[in-house]
């Protein structure tokens, strides 16, 4: 299966800007389907970005984050060609991980 995570990390020399887009339903558990039944909660709880084995950014998410979530941040350092590791885990225990080369 193709990765659910799309990451773009761009170094400007001093800082690295990271944009991530993840495919996930992010069901909050408050929305009803067409039959009027509640769709059970299914959302990413934690998303981490690691550079050089250290976390540079951690997101704790609830069901209030939009479907197919997007997040953008930046950190100091990060060399072109180096790898950034991204992984998430959802409330059902599903996970996905990918690595992106800093451009």
């Amino acid at each position: 299966m193709a990765s659910t995570i799309r990451v773009r990390a761009t170094s400007s020399g001093e800082t690295t800007e990271v944009q991530a887009l993840i495919q996930h339903p992010m069901d909050s558990g408050f929305i009803k389907d067409s039959k009027g039944e509640l769709i059970p909660p299914h959302f990413i709880q934690q998303l981490t970005f690691e550079y050089n084995g250290k976390p540079v950014f951690t997101a704790d998410w609830g069901g209030g984050v939009s479907k197919d979530p997007y997040v953008k941040f930046a950190f100091k350092g990060g060399k072109k060609g180096d790898e950034l590791k991204v992984s998430w885990v959802d409330n059902k225990g599903a996970t996905d991980t990918t690595t992106a080369k800093i451009q």
Partner: peptide, 21 residues
């Protein structure tokens, strides 16, 4: 009420963009 909470380690910029419901 809580939508998202981000941990910012030293060296990471205090700036975040995201999309919420």
């Amino acid at each position: 009420a809580l939508v998202a909470s981000y941990k910012i380690p030293a060296g990471t910029m205090p700036s975040v963009a995201n999309r919420i419901k």
